[in-house]
């Protein structure tokens, strides 16, 4: 057996190992990129749903944007007030109280309430259906109920019940992903506290609105007269509530003849 050959092989490979180790140690020191340890802490504090509600592709880019000062610390709505406080602490800013929001559907046109115009037989998509001769509902503003928003929701907060969308307020994080999904712009992000809402966007005249749906706003202005706080106004044939002025007294709900104004529990 040739002992020299074995020893020389060990020596050469060992020597190379030591040499490469030294080069790598040097490279690690010389070319190191400083990482802001706050990015990791922000990433830890956000909701981590990768939903995209903040406007970034996911939680990692959002965390980087927060630390670079580019993104607002209140953009992560799924995380809520807890996340805002945590991010404020990490970033050394003052935490501001953000009123928690919720997505609400401004339509009550369930089966039997809103009248259909035709039977829609086609791809199950609200966008596709509303392109078909103005949509399958008699009301050109009403919920089609084919669930484009349900597909967009990342938090399982929406489902189709009796022909329209029902939103589970406990699950809704007010991320706003459902808002652009609706081809009729029926979903609105409202403050959670604003419990009195006009759940109709029908801008047709009273006769046409009544013909299309029994729970449509007919612009009778009774709510306007009943409101003592100047909080509700009929604008373009449909009542609109100013949530800042509304005191939730519920007078408008009582006088509405078509029950299109609701007071959520």
């Amino acid at each position: 057996m040739n002992t020299t050959a074995i020893l020389s092989a060990v020596a050469v490979l060992g020597g190379l190992g030591v040499l490469f180790g030294l080069v790598l140690t040097f490279a690690d020191k010389a070319f190191s990129v400083p990482v802001d340890e706050r990015v990791a802490r922000v990433r830890e504090a956000v909701a981590g749903a990768n939903c995209g509600a903040c406007g970034y592709a996911g939680c990692d880019p959002y965390a980087a944007a927060v630390v670079s000062g580019e993104a607002s610390i209140t953009a992560c709505t799924p995380g809520g007030q807890k996340t805002f406080n945590a991010l404020a602490e990490i970033m050394g800013k003052n935490a501001c109280d953000v009123a928690p929001g919720v997505a609400r559907l401004l339509c009550q046109g369930e089966n039997g309430v809103a009248k259909p115009r035709y039977d829609y037989i086609g791809p199950p998509s609200c966008h596709a259906a509303t392109q078909m001769a103005g949509g399958p509902t008699a009301c050109a503003w009403g919920c089609v109920g084919l669930g484009d928003c349900v597909k967009a929701c990342q938090f399982d907060a929406m489902k189709i019940v009796n022909g329209i969308v029902s939103i589970d307020e406990n699950k809704c994080t007010s991320c706003g992903l459902c808002v652009p999904a609706c081809p009729r712009s029926l979903i609105k992000l409202l403050p959670r506290a604003a419990k009195v809402t006009v759940r109709c966007l029908n801008a047709a005249n009273a006769k046409d609105a009544m013909a299309a749906c029994s729970k449509a706003c007919i612009a009778c202005k009774r709510c306007e007269k009943a409101c003592e706080f100047d909080a509700i106004h009929v604008i373009g044939n449909c009542a609109v509530i100013d949530p800042e002025k509304c005191t939730l007294c519920g007078e408008c709900v009582k006088v509405c003849p078509t029950k299109c104004i609701t007071h959520q529990a």
């Binding site: 115009r117 035709y118 037989i121 086609g122 078909m132 001769a133 103005g134 399958p136």
Partner: peptide, 17 residues
Amino acid sequence: PGKLFFGGSMTGLALPD
């Protein structure tokens, strides 16, 4: 009738009524 449409069956447009 179950459906009316203008055009052929590939690119036709269904009618509301």
